[in-house]
Design a protein around this nucleic acid. Structure first.
Lengths: 152, 152
DNA sequence: TCGCTTATATCGAAGTTCGATATAAATGGG
DNA sequence: CCCATTTATATCGAACTTCGATATAAGCGA
């Protein structure tokens, strides 16, 4: 089991890395719940915010819900004014889901809450650590991009 | 709004960082569901794995559930053989929850799934990027530790 | 001991999710 | 152009989750 790593830094211990991410996420993910919206609901809003308008069925790929549950959930989101539904002009069977301004507001405010939270943590870092963190955002972006390719 | 940053690297753009973490988590968090366990259930298992035996009430602090929901959830976990309940020797009212070997197995296998997943992504990185990632685990650990102090 | 607090349990109502199935629009071969 | 098939969403009833209110029971302080 010799390492093929060329000694440019510490070996990459994936178990340690994954553990550190899991631990950090414990703090990062959990926000005070807004408007009594469930985890599933917030996930749908976040997906629509990130990927733009999509069909209901396409959401079943990312959200871990079956289609009937999504129909119910989206109906509620529409009643609450967070998502609008219109027929897909290209396919009369389908429905295009779009975040309303209010729906986007929720996603943005949750992002802002996380930024504020991380800002409080970062205050306690040294200048060197802060600089390292700055470089990290790009690397994470690379990983996400690779994931989008690799996971089909 | 002048930056007080000393020019050791790119400025730390928190909004970019938080966005990158959110995006990455989209891929990182979602695993194929094991044994039909819900998000709440998995979260409880993960917390018990990380912090060791705890009381039901202490779980209400981290899990976003009220006490009656946790009582129900834990009863199911006990029926399924994933946690064991015993009276707290220090307080006859309380119950100490401990992961069983089987419960730990689930947590470990989910960790292993994530490691395997990240391993596939990391293959596509350059040596420099891999080295940067190795250093990152420690930094995330620092942040988590700071969070544990700051968030009371 | 008594009264107050704290830890968990129980209960019924509201909300969520599922599998099975219905409806309705698209698509392709004849 | 029609029919059979496929695909997108909706509906339905059952099972499960979560909640607020309240019950039970153990600790705790005067």
């Amino acid at each position: 089991m010799a390492s093929s790593q060329a000694g440019r830094g510490p070996a990459l211990d994936l178990d340690e890395l994954v553990g550190a991410i899991e631990e950090f996420n414990t703090y990062f993910i959990r926000l005070p719940s807004v408007r009594r919206l469930s985890f599933s609901t917030l996930s749908v809003l976040h997906t629509l915010a990130g990927k733009g308008p999509m069909r209901l069925t396409d959401l079943t790929a990312t959200e871990q819900l079956k289609q009937p549950a999504l129909t119910t959930l989206v109906a509620k989101l529409e009643r609450d004014g967070l998502v609008s539904r219109r027929p897909d002009p290209r396919d009369g069977r389908a429905v295009l889901l779009t975040l309303t301004e209010e729906g986007m507001g929720i996603v943005r405010s949750r992002r802002a809450d996380r930024v504020a939270r991380v800002a409080r943590l970062v205050e306690h870092l040294s200048d060197e650590e802060r600089a390292a963190l700055a470089r990290y955002a790009g690397l994470l972006g690379r990983l996400t991009e690779i994931a989008a390719r690799v996971e089909d």
